[in-house]
Computed example of a mutant assay.
Amino acid sequence: MKDLGRIGFSEDQAALLEVAADFCQRRSPVATVRRLMEDELGHDPAVWAEMGDLGWLGVAIPEAFGGSGLGLAEVVPLVEQMGRRLMAGPFVSTTLAAQALIAGGTEAQKLEHLPRLAAGEAAAIALGEPDTDWEPDTISAAARRGDGGRLSLSGRKILVSDAGAARRLIVAVRLDGAPALVLLTPEDLPAGALRRETVIDETRRSFSLTLDGVTVAEDRLLDPDRAGATLEHLHLAANLLAAADMVGGTQACIDYTLDYLRTRTQFGKVIGSYQALKHPMVDAYTRYEQARSHLYSAAHCFNEQGTGEIAVRMAKAAADGAYSFAADRSIQFHGGFGFTWDCDAQLYRRRAIWHAAQFGDAAFHRKKLARLLF
């Protein structure tokens, strides 16, 4: 086990954090966030192209496949700053699809698809189902081998983030009684297979995917022998990046609330001077610092067997609690205005709820931790 007492930013993380903080602040002010909420695509293609030019899409992709050869630890500061600015776009979805190929793809699939993702093609993963319990191996969608080396798919996926913009979709199914992953393209899908969902966080673009009638060549199947391990890896990677987004959002929510408390006056006093508001904000900041410490601890030891899983689940549980608490206090402290659409506090609360529904909420991860630790 690594010496957890020496955790800090690596040089790569510090450099990426600095660049990302500036980029996200300039490219995703709240006015832009609100404008893109009304946009069908939901993100700015020009900003997406800039991310590609900066090399962000290849940060965690090996150099042999067109990436930088770093890891998810270096993706964390990028996603943290995106969450801080509520930045929209398929960055996390594409990163997770790349992780699926790295962990479970054949060499031919890696050579064909990873350079395209590093160059800027968006991708997505389709894991969740209507009866999901957040366990990676709970899969009802099915694949069946047919004539001519074809796979016939059936079932339904939900909460597929960024599927509308994706040029690659990696779908979890059950084949011959075991988990499997299949790579699809938009051309494989019949009309109406993708339908946009209405979700709590309107900065997100989420879709349901109907697999009935989809047939693909059997070479679209990722390595069956590694499918189970790949799903476990994706589950932890998704929670690590969700925790990063939530930590960044928590910081922004606290800053937004403090700005209001320092300027709003009541009974001749700035309301931030009242202890009834001071103490909860201290609690919010303490939770934020704890969650951020857990986040970078998890990034530090993500690839360590056992320790990495524990750290990621701690990070997601801490981030869930910190984000929800900070957003709730922000809404309350803004008074009647806090409950309106015009108040930005509700944007953070919606994002916190969205993340709790993705890959496990705090209670789910604490339950898993109880089994791992005791």
Rank of each mutant, 00 (worst) to 15 (best):
A243C: 10
G213L: 10
T263M: 01
A227Q: 07
A311T: 05
A237T: 01
L236C: 08
L241Y: 02
H294N: 12
N239Q: 15
Y288V: 00
T263Y: 00
A244W: 07
H294P: 01
L222V: 05
A178P: 06
Y285S: 15
P190G: 06
D245W: 11
L209I: 09
V173E: 09
G268W: 03
T307Y: 04
E309P: 11
L236D: 15
L241Q: 06
T263D: 06
L194E: 10
G213T: 13
S206G: 01
R204G: 05
H294R: 14
T257F: 00
A319T: 14
Q275C: 05
L184K: 02
D255L: 07
D188I: 02
Y260N: 02
S208F: 02
Q266V: 10
G177M: 13
K316T: 04
T263A: 03
T185W: 01
A244H: 03
A191E: 15
R220Y: 08
A178M: 12
L181V: 03
L241H: 08
R262W: 08
L295F: 13
L295I: 13
R220C: 15
A193Y: 10
R262E: 15
G308M: 12
A217Y: 01
V182W: 06
T185Q: 10
L261A: 03
L183W: 02
A276H: 03
Y285F: 14
E309G: 15
A227S: 15
Y285K: 15
G308A: 09
L184V: 05
R174H: 09
D225I: 06
Y260Q: 02
L295N: 01
M281A: 11
G268F: 08
S297P: 00
E304M: 10
G308I: 05
G272N: 07
H279N: 09
F207K: 09
A291I: 13
P190H: 07
G268L: 02
Q275G: 15
D176E: 15
L183F: 01
N239C: 15
L241K: 08
E289W: 04
G268R: 04
A284W: 11
A242C: 10
E197A: 08
R204Y: 04
L209T: 12
G228Q: 12
A276E: 13
K278P: 02
D255I: 02
V312G: 10
E309I: 05
S206Q: 11
E202T: 07
V270D: 08
K269P: 00
